[in-house]
Design a protein around this nucleic acid. Structure first.
Lengths: 147, 147
DNA sequence: TTAAAATAAGACATATTTGTCTCTTTTACA
DNA sequence: TGTAAAAGAGACAAATATGTCTTATTTTAA
């Protein structure tokens, strides 16, 4: 096993990207999203509840309710979804699992890993959903096609 | 949760680094290693059994037995330990968990993630344990000091 | 005002990972 | 040659992650 993001987080990222590829202010229920992303409806609900609680996604209850992006795609970065679901531990802990790994007491790959980790953080922080929109639409359309 | 390597793999990497920092051909039993790395003896046995099976580590049964590096530190790379324990999936699967992510059907961060992933693979493949030896010794000594 | 359709919340079930224990086999050495 | 100390193997237990279900609440619209 090796994981970058948990399944929950992967789904959260996919769902938010999915919403960002739709018309502004359009509303999607968990059923719709689950069919498009090909994952269980209940799992979608669960994950989007987390993202609703952290303010990235908005929700509307009741008939004709659903989920929507709570902010403009331009103001949302992937790192926020990661932070809300998995937390940012992976950007802090020693990759080799050594206790007390730090600048003063570095592990054998501390510097090199630190660089990679910073690059990864950068990648998830710099681009917003608007920047990714075109690629996202292409990918979502492909998913629907192969459903 | 976010994980780069599993606990087993972290321990495997630590144990192999530990052995590489010791005198050539010296033999360490799981008790010794567990005390130095501050992890349960049984877990050390389990993980080193895996690495023994894959030929990276050697073992000697019976009284005064233990584990040792089966090859010269110069000929062992961290990626081998990762490959033996966690496998190389993380270097192949889509970071967002999309099905069918490929050059033809890339996810929105395919190229950028691919670059980072390649860099990480590079880092684990290029340096051998000999290259890391000095840093490893420093870190191991620090661990022992804080035990 | 009522029925239907949606999220919210949390309990529950299953799968996987992590960690522990026991028994067997092997080996050194007294 | 017998005993102690080690790895090997696999069963078992506990913790965590993943996935499902049920019930409550909210909202729309007939």
């Amino acid at each position: 096993m090796t994981v970058i993001f948990s399944k929950k987080c992967e789904l959260g990222l996919q769902a938010v990207l999915f919403l960002s590829a739709q018309d502004k202010d359009s509303l999607w229920n968990s059923q719709d999203i689950s069919e498009n992303l090909n994952v269980p409806k209940e799992f979608v609900s669960k994950v989007l509840q987390t993202l609703t609680a952290s303010g990235i996604v908005g929700s509307k209850k009741g008939k004709a309710g659903g989920f929507f992006l709570n902010r403009a795609p331009k103001d949302i970065r992937l790192i926020e979804i990661v932070s809300a679901i998995d937390g940012l531990d992976m950007f802090e802990n020693c990759v080799l699992g050594f206790r007390g790994c730090s600048v003063e007491k570095p592990c054998p790959v501390h510097d090199q890993w630190g660089k990679l980790r910073a690059d990864a953080y950068e990648m998830l922080s710099q681009q917003n959903l608007e920047d990714l929109k075109e690629k996202t639409i292409t990918k979502i359309n492909d998913l629907i096609r192969r459903r």
